[in-house]
Design a binder for these strands. Structure first.
Lengths: 263, 263
DNA sequence: CAAATAGTGTCTGTCAGACACTATAGT
DNA sequence: ACTATAGTGTCTGACAGACACTATTTG
């Protein structure tokens, strides 16, 4: 029987970890309703060296009987208590100097969950705000906050940057914006998602036309009331039928999740 | 000191392997010049179980001091003797049942190398044809051949399928077509690449206009002679200046390679 | 000159962006 | 009635696709 000590094992094959960048759209607690929401991500404070005490992306070593996407969904559930509305593999980071300790190859996923102020209620009715999470070592931060932009452990700043780039890309060419919202949404809410993610203002009339022409969008027949102007229609997205060739079969966390879809 | 036997080690962390899908554009050996070229990939015959004797993507376990892209470039060099003209991470495949033996997580790259009939000569003047490779366990196959579509080991059929999807995508939205050609090329050659990759016919006039408007394309002042019609101009691509946010810093095999660029 | 492809000119339908205008709720 | 946003109509410039036409080489 072959035996290996820890350093020999490390020399043969690096450790595999899975981390997840989880985006949600929300306003700062107590902020007025007319302030635009921002993108937030949950972080976990490290309790061990290296980078002890600093914030890092949720993640951990890959379990022996755990598919990659299942590990990512597990990160999501334990840090946010939520089920992802979108989950896609981002990239495998495998540089030699990512960690000052032993070498780790991180397979990173990115996910979208709905915000706390969606139009729906239900078992996954939005991510709770930070003060509602019991664990003091888990907290949400805006992606453009100092904690995220400069304080993260390892190479996680770069990872978040790349995840943001991918999100902007997907929102431009694809149709993932509504996954940050509830099941029922107004077109203005979708437009607000685009505006926050892309950082630009969009013409309401043209945006409406473009979105209405996309297949899968359906009226619910309901309207959103309580606003001090004409009540907008509520829409929903029927799941698109055609999925382009994609490695979705490998390790899909949930049957309803399509990974890598560009549509 | 901690000791682990082999099965315990496998239970803790799956093995990491790196494989590469290497595309080249070429005609069948001996084919006439006016037959359209096809996409070919090199395969390696497995000499060990599982799948002994079957063809598989070039690859192997990740070396302890080897970055991911470096491992992919190494696959490329040992199977084709070439330096990649494009190299990008494709996906990390980590399903539980990918191999009947111990669990392996494969980080797959895809690459473009130039074909044997480019307009240039030089140290990497095109991939040699299969008969020129010494190793009888390495051979090139068209991507739409039976060997590729149905005979590959592991889940490599699915991987090649996904790499093809990505190539078509990149060729549509990006500008990687010329990486299958030499440094100097005619616009008709680029159009032929598009036609082969996308499987459609393209209008020469409109394609020319579109390509001419892309930044970075420059005339060489030379013409391609020896054709029995008006000699076309030879162009080249100056490397684009702006690189979008991408994880290129991690494990880039060559400084001149931009990973993940969509431009 | 014939053949073949290089390369140019031009028309047309589609679509994104700009923006004026009407509709309908709350206050 | 006023305000704010929902939602419609319409114009324009850019551009992709279709296709006629000219240019220039080989044989």
């Amino acid at each position: 029987m072959e035996f290996l000590n820890v350093s020999e094992r490390a020399a043969i094959s690096p450790e595999i970890a899975v981390s997840t960048v989880i985006f949600s759209l929300r306003r700062a607690p107590g902020a007025a309703d007319d302030t635009p929401p921002r993108l937030w991500i949950p972080l976990v404070r490290r309790t061990r060296q290296p980078y002890r005490g600093q914030w890092a992306l949720p993640g951990g070593p890959l379990g022996a009987q755990q598919s990659l996407a299942a590990a990512a969904a597990e990160n999501l559930r334990t840090t946010t208590g939520l089920v992802p509305r979108y989950l896609e593999q981002l990239y495998a980071f495998g540089g030699l100097d990512r960690s000052p300790a032993r070498r780790v190859v991180s397979i990173v996923y990115w996910a979208l969950v709905r915000g706390a102020d969606s139009n729906d209620d239900g078992p996954d009715a939005g991510a709770p705000h930070s003060e509602l999470i019991e664990d003091p070592n888990v907290a949400w931060f805006p992606v453009d906050s100092d904690e995220v932009r400069a304080q993260l452990a390892f190479d996680h700043v770069e990872i978040v940057e790349y995840a943001l780039w991918r999100l902007r890309n997907k929102v431009t060419y694809g149709k993932v914006a509504h996954r940050l919202l509830g099941d029922r949404f107004t077109l203005a809410q979708v437009r607000e998602v685009y505006e926050v993610v892309l950082g630009t203002r969009l013409d309401p009339a043209n945006f409406r036309r473009q979105l209405l022409s996309s297949p899968g969008l359906a009226e619910t027949g309901e309207h959103l009331h309580g606003v001090k102007h004409r009540p907008p229609k509520l829409y929903r997205f029927e799941d698109p039928v055609d999925t382009p060739p994609s490695p979705a079969a490998h390790g899909a966390a949930t049957a309803s999740l399509q990974e890598g879809s560009l549509t």
